[in-house]
Structures are given as C-alpha cells and as structure tokens.
Simulated assay, not measured.
Amino acid sequence: MLGNLSGFSPETDSVPGPEMYIIDQYMLHMLQDYASKVTEAYKNYEFGKVIRLLEALITRDLSSFYFSIIKDR
C-alpha cells in the first residue's frame, strides 16, 4: 500500500468523498469507526485491544474484503 503513495500529493491527487466509489466511501467509514475504537482503547490503556482491532482491520476488512474487491479495477 505504501508503495502506491510515491508521488502522491493530497492537494492535487485527492478525490472528494462524493466522487469516490461506494466501496471506497464504505472503507473510509469503517476506518473512521476503527480510529475511534483504537483511540478509546489507547485512552483506557488497553493496548491488547488496540492490537486486536488493528489485526482485525488488516486481515478481515482490508485483506480479505476490500483488497479482493478492488484488485481488478
């Protein structure tokens, strides 16, 4: 994922939310949800929960769901 960011400029290359594909809007919504859960876990010093949340995001939501859908576009 990080390799695809080479040369990316947010000012010129970002796509506004309403112009994104529905699946991309959905993933941004999921990322917002994960970010709030992770932030809350950090505030409560629940570091094990942070790891479990990030692992679930990477393996379940990104790898087996999102990336398998967008690989062909």
Rank of each mutant, 00 (worst) to 15 (best):
M1K: 13
M1Y: 12
M1N: 10
L2W: 12
G3R: 15
G3M: 14
N4M: 14
N4I: 06
S6R: 12
S6N: 13
S6K: 12
G7E: 04
G7F: 10
F8E: 05
P10D: 03
P10I: 02
E11C: 03
D13S: 07
S14K: 12
V15W: 13
V15N: 08
P16A: 05
P16Y: 00
G17S: 08
G17I: 03
G17F: 02
P18E: 11
P18I: 10
M20Y: 02
M20T: 00
I22F: 05
I22P: 00
D24Q: 14
Q25P: 11
Y26H: 11
M27V: 10
M27A: 05
L28M: 12
H29Y: 07
H29N: 11
M30N: 09
M30Q: 13
L31H: 12
L31V: 07
Q32A: 09
Q32T: 06
D33M: 09
D33R: 03
Y34H: 09
A35K: 15
A35P: 06
S36A: 01
T39G: 05
T39F: 09
E40Q: 14
E40R: 11
E40D: 15
A41T: 05
A41Q: 09
Y42C: 11
Y42T: 06
Y42P: 00
K43V: 00
N44H: 12
N44W: 08
N44Q: 14
E46P: 03
E46F: 07
F47K: 14
F47L: 15
G48L: 06
G48V: 02
K49D: 10
K49V: 13
V50L: 08
I51N: 11
I51S: 11
R52S: 14
R52G: 03
R52L: 06
L53G: 11
L54I: 05
L54T: 08
E55D: 14
E55C: 07
E55W: 07
E55T: 10
A56S: 13
L57M: 13
I58R: 15
T59I: 04
D61I: 02
D61W: 03
S63F: 03
F65S: 13
Y66T: 02
Y66V: 02
Y66D: 01
F67Y: 05
S68I: 01
S68H: 06
S68R: 06
S68W: 00
I69Y: 12
I70Q: 04
I70C: 04
K71Y: 10
K71T: 07
D72E: 04
D72Q: 05
D72N: 13
R73W: 01
R73Y: 01
